[in-house]
Design a protein around this nucleic acid. Sequence first.
DNA 1: GACTCAAAGGATTTAATTGTCCGCTGAGGT
DNA 2: ACCTCAGCGGACAATTAAATCCTTTGAGTC
Lengths: 133, 133
Amino acid sequence: MMSQTSRYAFHVLGFLASHGGRLIPGDELAAATGIPANYLVKILNQLRKGGLVESRKGWGGGFALKPGAEDRPILDVVEIIEGQGAGAKDDCAFGRPACDAGNPCPMHEGWAEIRDGYHTLLSRTLVRDLASP
Amino acid sequence: MMSQTSRYAFHVLGFLASHGGRLIPGDELAAATGIPANYLVKILNQLRKGGLVESRKGWGGGFALKPGAEDRPILDVVEIIEGQGAGAKDDCAFGRPACDAGNPCPMHEGWAEIRDGYHTLLSRTLVRDLASP
DNA sequence: GACTCAAAGGATTTAATTGTCCGCTGAGGT
DNA sequence: ACCTCAGCGGACAATTAAATCCTTTGAGTC
């Protein structure tokens, strides 16, 4: 339901969120989170392009949360990582191309409930909530 | 959250459930469900080994639900297809190896709710419920 | 300006899932 | 007996996610 890469993104954003706007090098983030360093940098790059993270090169450089990013829902994170419409509402447990209230598959109702709960969780959880206490 | 193969399994089991214990050839099942024929046979084979389906070779052969399989929860299907412990309770949204009530990740509570809802759906939905009306 | 630090980007590898192909086996019918 | 039908099994190809490697670019220090 959630890609490994999204989980990594949650983890590292949580770490950044608990360290204010301070720039932290990728290597340090990798060591702190246990995420493979080379891969982590790629994820952070996606997040930067998505507007959640900013970076600076060279000495004293690293990654930091973009100001205001703490208030973004983590649904944004999933959409940046997995593409728009991850867990879209037309996602059917039978794999049917079209499955809605008018033409439901046998699992439609129960599955829609799970999907909506997932979507709600992603919408209500903010990046700031990912910070460790 | 649910593999494509599990979705295929739901679909074909639903078809079988709505056709009683009648033997139906794999080709016919593939045509009826839109699942790739060669792949579908492999899935049905897994389900047979898992005890949900029976089969007969040769003329008049095909696949059918095993007697009593209608009353099995579809959690069994997912476990046959994806292996035991698919969507296990240690599955953490942060990807942490250990994440429980004593040492929770920031998303632990909300995510546990989704996971439990998923597990409950699979436990309460029976193979017979997959039949189309 | 030369050197170092660290991000940016591209190419490649690995692993898992999904899907395809082909020959074998067993159960009928004729 | 022989032929056909249809499930069985193993090997293989395609796709995607995940991870690694290498080179380039930019920023700062000395």
